[in-house]
Design a protein around this nucleic acid. Structure first.
Lengths: 346, 346
DNA sequence: TTGTAGGCGTTATCAT
DNA sequence: ATGATAACGCCTACAA
């Protein structure tokens, strides 16, 4: 034992019981070789005597040695990590987007660290504070405005999901809500409906769905009136039930509704039936998502199907462009267009 | 410009177009201060002239400087990262477990990097290869045996989900399948059923569900026979439909089934109805999961509800114990016991 | 208020 | 086959 080794903490532990993680130095010492030799053994490079290699590995095992990913990343230009911020893992929509992100990230050899913001602006900020330090880029859904996001981002590239390119200064991947809504409303109108309601979910006064809905209904010559829209703050089946009940109370003459998402639409079906209306005969319901859950309920849900995996993959592609200095995709290339899937509910 | 600076690559870029990321050194140079001063400005410590600070931050902005998480982690004993390996993000069971993991991890200030193995043993291996380098611990679902896992793990602590403590040498968080199955079978028997089938999902010959099922049926004096079990390799609604069809063909006298999970059980309901049987009158169906989806189908699914979030939280707790040198929880403390939730399907 | 020196744990390069 | 030395980018002392 040499002098400077006594100054080091001993591997055995320290006062508080937590023991320092073994370093390459400790292993080298125990095996009686240089750090370089340990490195060679651990990363099994050639140029090392099988005997010493075994001795080193044994020492490493005894000390439970694992290379520090930080030190390694420092010298070996570590891999890419991207952050993913999801508002609600319980809504089947988001796991599917996440699957797309994971898939695309994996193909590039990137890692993805996930945060669930639970649709809480404050938690969004915390997530970004964390991720801006640990990730090379972030993609996700956010309620906060651009300025707030930028503040928490500290320069880390961001790709926002589900916001029109006009509505943000960040790179974005969006849904063509207008096109989707038009398809949905057109289908209802073609089925003879003239009294169509919207179960919206956007808190900020007229959100994209609402605007698109009113455009579409106007275009089809229907009366446009705020009372045809009710807000469902909770984007869930329960939220949809509550919303539908309110709409039924305010606009008993309604014969069709489109939901902010499939969960809300399913809630609408349930509330309508509970109120004694048959679906689709007395009330037609159209969802907006294309969850596979929609095929399971009764009647099966007609919906504007969104390719959620593609959404996720596109987001990763945007990140890649950002990183390589290319311009991010914009316009139709960065949108996903909902497809009308007609089932029994409308 | 001094000599050794000319040797450095210039910040502007290099031959291949990719430009080197700016370091603290570059910023210091551009701002005409020492690296230490840059550090102070960036981490806004006090002890710095507001004017210089602004100058430094401006330089940092111009160079798009962001501190290297590796260098920083090296010196500041970086945060904990745990890996999470999920077999199938499309099965609503797993996002909920993931939510529990994320929740618990966040409370400890840990990050979670997620991999989707798609139930593919080969991909499991790749995920572990990656994670063993980048994560401080791993939790997840695995098909591979302990030995294979250990090989890919390189000493990184592992917590396996949904495996009995006896079946693995790793720390585990399990489901008390025996208790759950007993409750399910008891309920069916109490309802008068004597011809009960199992739609299993475990490929390895008699998996836990199967064993527990046969124990329970035997205990209740029913005939135990392999022909009452059919395998559903695909843990999905489709898989359940196929399995139920086969069981109906082989054992037409069946009056009740319990599914490997809720998705399979829902498939069973659909297949049974398609075959002209009423549920629950002609065929009672019990699921095993407690997905919220089960409340939405018709008839609503009776199921053995598992607290999935708790599963995830427990897994993180196990990781914490592993890291602190404590013994991991074992026995009932590391299990989640399914609760029978009776709805219309049985 | 600012700068200098040293070390964090690892790998690459060049000797030996 | 092995070892010495110098990075990697940042931060915490300590000195000026």
């Amino acid at each position: 034992m040499r002098g400077d080794d006594q100054q080091r903490e001993t591997r055995a532990g320290r006062a508080d019981g937590t023991r320092r993680r073994a370093t390459i130095h400790d292993v080298a010492q125990l095996a009686g070789v240089s750090r370089q030799t340990v490195s060679r053994a651990v990363n099994d490079k050639g140029e090392i005597d099988p005997a010493t290699k075994e001795r080193v590995l044994e020492a490493a095992r005894r000390l439970d040695y694992r290379p520090s990913r930080f030190a390694r990343g420092l010298v070996r230009k570590g891999g890419v990590t991207t952050g993913l911020v999801i508002p609600d893992l319980m809504n089947p929509f988001f796991p599917e987007v996440a699957a797309g992100v994971l898939e695309a990230a994996e193909q590039r050899g990137w890692q993805v660290v996930v945060w669930d913001s639970r649709t809480d602006p404050a938690r969004e900020g915390e997530a970004l504070d964390m991720l801006s330090h640990q990730a090379d880029a972030v993609v996700g859904y956010f309620k906060n405005g651009d300025d707030v996001l930028a503040r928490h981002l500290g320069g880390v590239p961001l790709v926002v999901l589900e916001r029109g390119p006009q509505q943000t200064r960040f790179a974005a991947v969006g849904i063509d809500v207008a096109a989707g809504m038009e398809r949905g409303v057109a289908h209802l109108v073609a089925s003879g409906h003239r009294a169509i309601g919207l179960l919206d979910g956007d808190a900020e006064s007229p959100g994209p769905r609402r605007l698109a809905f009113e455009d579409a209904t106007r275009r089809h010559g229907l009366p446009v009136d705020a009372s045809w829209t009710v807000l469902c703050p909770e984007h869930s089946v329960t939220g949809g039930e509550a919303g539908m009940a309110r709409l039924l109370a305010e606009r008993p003459e309604v014969t069709a509704v489109v939901g902010f998402n499939d969960l809300i639409a399913v809630g609408a079906i349930r509330a309508a039936r509970r109120a004694g209306r048959r679906v689709p005969d007395d009330l037609a319901v159209v969802g907006f998502d294309g969850l596979s859950l929609g095929e399971l309920v009764e009647p099966a849900l007609t919906t504007l199907h969104i390719d959620k995996r593609r959404l996720g993959r596109l987001a990763v592609e945007q990140v890649a462009r950002l990183r390589s200095g290319e311009d991010p995709l914009t316009g139709p290339d960065a949108w996903v267009v909902p497809e009308l899937v007609i089932r029994a509910s409308a």
